[in-house]
């Protein structure tokens, strides 16, 4: 199946070519090729079970941890093949951060949640540098004002929306180049969602962001490009405003007009 629309980006940070993913015998991603441009927000939409999360996890090799999962094809980050056996996954994941669908802070203090990544990577030489990283990360995630007085409190004691922002702060604390977000707002109320969307806008200046979402409005609000998946196929990809106004593929049209999914 060939993808409709322009899969290439002018200035790609990541490129994916003929990516296939299998869970044992199950063919979950079928021959997907797409670029992810520098400083752009790419939204991935599609009905449940179509393979959005699976594809997202290919981008920082989190699929490695899943038993029986096999990935073929090539994915590059800044021209470097990330599935090259010589490539260090730890380094890759420092460059490509991830925010999960369900907030998953460590059962440690807010401070330690943020400081953990910089600590293991040796990003801060002194305590005050570390403090600085924690503060800026929380500020970027829009959480600083709410938690600055209780940095020693457990991160699991925060509300769901706060926890999700904590996880975002944790991801950006290691200064990745790409941030992958898997339905970051699925458990949040509209206000918290709006904050995170604002945050994505701000982050775009420095980072490349891939976001999976079930909300067409959200995709329209935050992304420059949108990719539509269906049963493991990448059906259509293009500039967000074009996809939502003039979809070229009938499946895409059915989906965004709410006729299925």
């Amino acid at each position: 199946m060939t993808t409709v629309g322009e899969i290439r980006a002018a200035n790609p940070r990541m490129t994916c070519r003929q990516v296939n993913v299998y869970y044992g015998d199950k063919h979950a991603i079928k021959n997907v090729s797409i670029d992810i441009g520098r400083n752009e927000v790419l939204a991935m939409i599609g009905p449940s079970g179509c393979g959005k999360s699976t594809f997202l996890r290919c981008l920082n090799r989190m699929n490695d941890t899943i038993e029986g999962c096999r990935v073929t094809g090539t994915i590059t980050l800044d021209g470097q093949d990330i599935y090259d056996p010589d490539l260090d996954v730890v380094l890759l994941r420092a460059q490509v951060g991830m925010v999960f669908q369900k907030p998953n802070p460590f059962p440690k203090s807010i401070y330690d949640n943020i400081a953990y990544g910089p600590k293991i990577h040796g990003l801060a030489r002194t305590r005050s540098e570390l403090d600085q990283i924690v503060e800026t990360s929380l500020q970027k995630a829009g959480l600083w004002d709410e938690v600055k007085d209780r940095l020693k409190h457990p991160g699991t004691g925060l509300s769901g929306g706060q926890q999700q922002r904590l996880c975002i702060a944790r991801a950006i604390a290691v200064s990745p180049e790409v941030i992958l977000m898997d339905e970051p707002c699925s458990a949040l109320d509209p206000i918290a969602t709006a904050r995170i969307e604002d945050l994505i806008h701000e982050l775009r200046e420095q980072y490349t962001i891939v976001i999976v979402t079930h909300s067409m409005q959200q995709a329209a609000r935050v992304s420059q490009r949108t990719a539509f998946f269906h049963m493991g196929d990448l059906i259509e990809v293009g500039p967000t405003d074009r996809i939502f106004t003039r979809p070229r593929h009938s499946l895409t049209e059915d989906y965004i007009t709410g006729r299925f999914g």
Binding site: N60, M62, T65, V90, L91, R93, A94, G97, M98, F100, K102, N104, P105, F106, P107, Y116, G117, I120, H121, C167, R170, A171, A173, V174
Partner: peptide, 15 residues
């Protein structure tokens, strides 16, 4: 121990 904790650690680049 929930797998999400492992994922969280791996995703920030822990070995």
């Amino acid at each position: 121990v929930p797998p999400s904790i492992r994922d969280a650690a791996l995703a920030v680049g822990a070995s």
